[in-house]
Design a protein around this nucleic acid. Structure first.
Length: 454
RNA sequence: GUGGGCGUAGCUCAGUCGGUUAGAGCGCCGGAUUGUGGUUCCGGAGGUCGCCGGUUCGAAUCCGGUCGCCCACCCCA
């Protein structure tokens, strides 16, 4: 419900109640797991940066979309809208002594000041994984594999998402071949980039408005409508430059196919990415079923570190947000449940047995089990109800009889069966039928898929 | 920033030719059940109808403004 009380949370910002945080945590865990398998190390930086860091790279226009203010020392600062400039700054200061290539990742919270909409808020978390110091295609493929596996680790597969791949150099070669003037390049890329959403007619109109000539307009319209690899090769079979520019993507695909990830790849001439700093292969991960929402985007940016004042190092990386991904998982019904962990629920029949119950709970918790019980005196029926609601695997009942004989009645909620065990046996680690091994149960994350497990 | 749609209970929503104390389902709490849960039955709590103002004898309902959410545009990190 909305409210205009000044305490209400800011538009586009989120509260994370346990169910929401559980989903976020699952996403983060999957990302960290995958990055770790690829040998990436985690880093972080300040959420607040000098405004100039972003103006430098993206121009003054971007300031309108940032959270900016002057701090008490009069410095113009901004909440970070992306991580790459921070990474570039960090490396500019200290990359000289570091072994290359550098494989780093981070999961920063990022901010942007613009009207929020589905999948796009004013605040989000984004996995950033980058390889710095390696210009070879192997790094491009490696980073794409991390992105794909980062989504797969959450239980999505080939039927759920696709990686659309292109190369800036290839697009430039095509524009060259078609004789598009240098001054029209940027505008031309913008039209191509929008082609997927705008449709063929609008795209053609957009191209015509650029006055790049009928031949070029026609050729680009064709490519946008059917930009398949084969068509591109046929169309430019006589252009040495274009054919040469297709080589890196061919090698890129070859590597990923060998990794078993070829099924995710789709060449797409309309993927150029808005950012000016991309210089080579670019890619985006898209949801197949939905409105083809972008899950992730990235590519090669070989000049960026230089621009921020570092040594000239080639780099390639991507950013993947938690918002669209979280929505996808919810849509697919593979988001985690909201319930608390409860391995054992301890019930005492009379207040006199509470101390014994506490002793038992203490011992079980020491073994790593999640143990709950009623915090006030209630009937056994009520307590069982509480245990059921919490999804307890076992219920441990201590009444006068058990107390007198040093035993515990162990009830399995799922089967309804119960048996009597000695207190000593329970605390000795020998459990009964249900939930006897909580550590094992907890490590099995529903919906998770191991890399290469498909 | 522009245009459109929508704001009623914790959730999903009924309810408008303006008319007593604003409803349902689910959820929540209590009871039926003082040593045995899930099902069932009974009961209860919970809403300044987003907010402010206007019209009216009377507004959830009509009008204006405002805030928020959603969609499209813009932009994409």
């Amino acid at each position: 419900m909305s409210s205009d009380k000044s305490f209400a949370k800011l538009p586009g910002f989120r509260d994370f109640v346990p169910a929401d945080l559980a989903l976020r945590t699952r996403i983060f865990d999957a990302w960290r797991r995958v990055c770790g398998r690829y040998g990436f190390m985690e880093y972080d930086g300040p959420p607040l940066e000098p405004l100039g860091l972003y103006v430098e790279k993206s121009g003054p226009e971007i300031v309108k979309q940032l959270y900016t203010f002057a701090d008490k020392g009069g410095r113009e600062v901004a909440l970070r809208p992306e991580m790459t400039p921070t990474l570039a700054r960090i490396l500019a200061e200290r990359s000289r002594g570091m072994a290359k290539p550098i494989r780093w990742f981070s999961i920063p919270q990022l901010f942007r000041y613009e009207r929020s909409q589905r999948g796009r808020l004013r605040e989000h978390f984004q996995l950033n994984a980058d390889i710095v110091g390696e210009a070879g295609i192997g790094a491009d493929a490696e980073v794409a594999a991390v992105a794909i596996d980062g989504v797969r680790a959450l239980g999505l597969g080939e039927e759920d998402f696709v990686a659309r791949v292109n190369d800036r150099r290839l697009v430039n070669a095509v524009l060259d071949e078609l004789g598009v003037a240098e001054g029209r390049r940027a505008a031309c890329l913008a039209v191509i980039d929008k082609a997927g959403r705008a449709g063929p007619a609008k795209t053609r109109a957009g191209l015509e408005a650029l006055r790049i000539g009928d031949a070029a307009t026609g050729a680009l319209s064709d490519l946008v409508a059917d930009g398949s690899w084969e068509r591109l090769r046929d169309r430019f079979r006589s252009s040495h430059a274009v054919l040469a520019a297709m080589q890196p993507l061919a090698e890129h695909r070859e590597i990923l196919e060998a990794m078993g990830l070829g099924g995710y790849l789709r060449f797409d001439f309309t993927v150029v990415r808005g950012l000016a700093y991309y210089t080579g292969i670019v890619f985006e991960l898209f949801d197949r079923a939905g409105e083809m929402r972008a899950i992730c985007g990235g590519g090669r940016y070989d000049r960026l570190l230089e621009l921020v004042g570092g040594e000239p190092l080639p780099a390639v990386g991507f950013g993947m947000g938690d918002v669209v991904l979280g929505e996808l998982l919810r849509d697919r019904g593979i988001a985690p449940g909201a319930g608390a962990q409860c391995d054992d629920y301890v019930i005492w029949v009379e207040p006199e047995q509470r101390s014994l119950g506490m002793h038992l709970a203490r011992g079980l918790r020491r073994e790593g089990r999640a143990v709950l019980y009623g915090l006030k005196t209630l009937g056994v029926g009520k307590q069982l109800r509480g245990a059921n609601r919490l999804g307890a695997a076992r219920v441990l009942i201590i009444g006068p009889d058990e107390a007198a004989s040093g035993t515990v009645t162990v009830r399995c909620l799922a089967s309804g069966r119960q048996e009597t065990t000695t207190l000593k046996a329970l605390l000795g680690g020998r459990g009964s039928e249900a939930g006897a091994n909580p550590a094992e149960r907890r490590s099995t994350v529903p919906g998770s898929t191991e890399v290469g497990g498909r």
